[in-house]
Design a protein around this nucleic acid. Structure first.
Lengths: 138, 138
DNA sequence: GCTGGCGTTGACGTCGGGGTGAAGGTCTAG
DNA sequence: CTAGACCTTCACCCCGACGTCAACGCCAGC
């Protein structure tokens, strides 16, 4: 299979495949004419890359999975290195979710206060005391 | 107060202040010598910008808050436009948290399965059936 | 044998946001 | 007088994951 077919079958582009090869992620055999030659196994590796990319993995992070498959293991995550990447990614996701959730709560509080202040003003006299947003040194 | 002092007091750089001015976010009066002249109110506006940036707001998104303060309102979020930005930001954060959490769960499941498969292999015979990760068209 | 469609390489562009850096000049504080 | 702060403009950076040429080779069908 040549590069165009593989790209089509994997739903990516020839440019991406050449890029992966340039990164050493998905090297290709070469035919006598210099054309890249791929097989079904490469399609599998490529699919592994794309799945992980969809999960937000960087290309480098997919490398252990790809190498694991290439080493003949049944799945990309059958190797310890892949599990380590899973764990690192989980920790990263947890940290992001925690940070975003915290900001979310602060913002929700600010919105509620601002709306209350507005309504109080619209209703009658001075309302609840407002707490101004202030930078906290970390 | 000149640009250097304001930058120092707000914990930012003169370059950033000139940049904000170029975006029309924090225009400065000019002295006879062409130097930018700022006052305490500008420091307040600047602090508002920095607080929101720390929350992940883009510069453009801080504009309603800054203009609200400049219009003489007690707080940056005393204006409807600011509240709208709060709401948009909350929706954005909720969407991000949802997406990340979903990925997190899938990944946690994959990790658990992969570890189980490894342990089963280490222990005895074939273990639980593995479900391979496959791209789902959206 | 010509056209069109594939393939090759390498160099450079893109995106986005929030700036930074350098050059070259002016102004001011001590 | 001189160091340092200020002025302007233009270019450049960061990051990853490609995209976009340019300029060429290879091959099938008509």
């Amino acid at each position: 299979m040549r590069i165009g077919e593989l790209a089509r079958r994997a739903g990516t582009t020839t440019r991406a495949l050449r890029y992966y090869e340039s990164r050493g992620l998905l090297p290709a055999r070469r035919g006598g004419n210099g054309y890249r030659a791929y097989d079904e196994e490469d399609l599998r590796l490529l699919r592994q890359i794309r799945v992980l990319q969809d999960f937000g993995f960087e290309l480098e992070e997919t490398r252990p999975f790809v190498e694991c498959l290439r080493a003949g293991h049944p799945a990309g995550d059958s190797c310890p290195a892949s599990l380590e990447v899973y764990r690192a990614k989980l920790a990263e996701l947890d940290a992001m979710v925690a940070r975003l959730s915290e900001v979310r709560e602060v913002l929700a509080g600010q919105l509620a206060q601002a709306e209350a202040a507005r309504d109080a003003l619209a209703g009658a006299g001075p309302g609840e005391p407002r707490c101004e947003l202030v930078r906290t040194e970390e």
